[in-house]
Simulated assay, not measured.
Amino acid sequence: MPSNLTSIVEAMPPAQREGALIVLDHLTRPMTQREIAAHLQRHGVQRAKAGKIAAAVADFQIVALLGPGG
């Protein structure tokens, strides 16, 4: 089996490669300001504060938010 990710992807059949790229695109899509605020609210940040935080980091291209415990 190839040892680097590029070789693995290049060795995939076209349909499998397309599926893998669709998943990768979805997982690496930056979160919207609304998604960031909602995530913060679900983890105990008050709505007004979550909105301000989300607005402040909206241009950072965030793809995931993890807190204590993952």
Rank of each mutant, 00 (worst) to 15 (best):
E18G: 09
V45H: 03
H43N: 10
A48Y: 10
R17Y: 02
L24I: 12
R17C: 07
M1G: 14
H26S: 09
A37L: 09
A20G: 12
H39S: 09
P2E: 09
H26P: 02
P2Y: 01
R29Q: 02
H43L: 01
A54S: 09
P14Q: 08
L24S: 10
K52R: 00
E10Y: 05
P14L: 01
L40E: 03
A11D: 14
A55I: 11
G69E: 10
L27P: 07
M1P: 11
A38N: 04
A11T: 12
A11R: 08
A54K: 06
D25P: 00
Q61Y: 12
V9K: 04
T28H: 05
P14V: 07
V9R: 08
A15K: 15
A56G: 14
P30Y: 03
A50I: 02
E18F: 04
E18A: 11
A55G: 13
L66C: 08
A38V: 01
A20D: 05
I62N: 03
A48N: 13
R34Y: 07
G70V: 04
Q46E: 15
G19P: 00
G19T: 07
E10K: 07
M12I: 10
S3Q: 14
I8D: 13
A37Y: 00
L5M: 04
D25Q: 15
M31H: 02
S7N: 02
S3M: 12
P14W: 06
L21Q: 03
N4M: 09
N4A: 01
R17P: 01
A11I: 04
Q61W: 10
A37S: 11
T32Q: 04
T32N: 09
V57D: 01
G70C: 03
P13K: 15
A58P: 10
P68Y: 03
L66H: 05
N4Q: 07
V63I: 15
K49S: 10
A37K: 00
Q61M: 13
T6F: 12
P30C: 00
H39F: 05
P2Q: 06
N4L: 00
I8R: 15
L21A: 05
A58W: 03
A48S: 14
H43Y: 00
G70K: 05
V9H: 03
I22Y: 10
E10D: 11
Q61L: 12
A50N: 03
H39I: 09
P68T: 11
M1F: 13
A55M: 12
L27D: 06
L40A: 05
S3Y: 11
A56H: 08
V63Q: 11
L27H: 00
R29L: 06
G51P: 07
T6Q: 13
G69T: 06
H39D: 08
T32V: 02
G70I: 10
T32H: 05
I22C: 09
G69M: 06
A50C: 11
G70A: 00
G51Q: 12
G19H: 06
I53S: 07
V45M: 05
L5Q: 01
I8T: 15
L65V: 07
A50Q: 06
L27W: 04
Q46W: 13
A50V: 02
P13I: 14
A20L: 15
G70R: 01
T6M: 11
L21K: 02
V45S: 09
A54Q: 07
L21F: 03
S7Y: 02
S3N: 15
L27V: 04
I36G: 00
G67T: 08
G44E: 11
R34H: 09
G67A: 06
L5T: 01
L66P: 01
A54C: 10
T28W: 02
